[in-house]
Design a binder for these strands. Structure first.
Lengths: 163, 163
DNA sequence: TAGTGTTTCGAGACTGAGAATCAATTTCAA
DNA sequence: TTGAAATTGATTCTCAGTCTCGAAACACTA
């Protein structure tokens, strides 16, 4: 389950830290070294990180960081609207950056774990219509497409000969 | 979290038991009293049952039934294509009958827990198109709409006055 | 019907993700 | 600098679900 994770643009991390610090100040929380470190680790990656991966990244910068702190910090980031939690198949929560992003859904490769985001206005409209027909007022939804990505598909159809 | 659960048509349960027994015979498994009992309990309900609820139902018929057996039996039913596992928000797996049914998605009321099924061919088509555009070959997907059902919506907009 | 080799059973231990607890430490306004 | 309040890391707890194990049930044969 490898995943390509090029570095996120530094401006995003900076903006996020700024937003976080005002959010923290606004409700009597406190700025801490650990929090900054975890936020940096999170925003220096793109993609959908599990807490486990994030703990690993954080520990590279400071081995004394505890997993509980990472859990707590990600919850704060989520509450502040800077990250959003995703529950894909596999039972592990993954977080993605949510700063100034709007809604999107996901394509997930079940072979390599790669996650691709997409938006589709038409699908959203049809969902709303379906909900309306059933008298539901929808607050949020989850649309995930699972399968093989282009690369894994290719490897599947042209497998290396067994030696 | 109440849920209306009218009894399922008896023919379904009978057909399911038949299918299960041939599936069991085909791979050297054994027919047991507990398995029959759990299958009966499952197919005598409609809706999306959690293992917890199913254990309760099973224990009503035989208090000595263990939860592990219910887990194991539901896994067999799933493998045999007679039930399918759904992972909605809340972290508990729910099972629905899958005999001779085709694909559908779900509307979930976050207030009363009611779950409504729907099908929409247009949405499926658009999903396929999106996947294709990204080079994915989709094996399965998950579409869940969360919100308030008609009844809960109404209670929300006309709340009882506090006494 | 008894004998025999598997499979399955129930109870309880175990697992993994995540939340809660707690004593010790850190933050920050005064 | 002080000290109340928030935070930390370690640990424990919870919850859903799986695994293990000795005992019991099943299916098949003689």
């Amino acid at each position: 389950m490898k995943r390509a994770v090029p570095p996120r643009k530094p401006t995003t991390a900076a903006a996020a830290r700024e937003r976080l610090s005002s959010w923290i100040a606004a409700r009597g929380l406190k700025a801490t070294r650990q929090r900054d470190l975890i936020v940096d680790a999170f925003f220096s990656q793109v993609g959908h990180l599990s807490v486990e991966e994030l703990v690993e990244k954080a520990k590279q910068r400071d081995p004394s960081i505890g997993a509980a702190t990472v859990y707590r910090t990600m919850k704060i980031l989520t509450d502040a609207g800077l990250a959003s939690a995703r529950h894909f198949e596999g039972g592990q929560t993954r977080y993605e950056a949510a700063l100034d992003r709007h809604h999107h859904d996901h394509l997930i490769c079940t072979s390599c774990g790669n996650i691709v985001e997409f938006e589709n206005e038409r699908i959203e409209e049809l969902q709303d219509r379906v909900a309306q027909e059933h008298g539901f007022s929808v607050t949020h939804h989850k649309l995930e497409l699972y399968g093989l990505c282009a690369r894994c598909n290719q490897q599947q159809s042209h497998p290396k000969p067994a030696r």
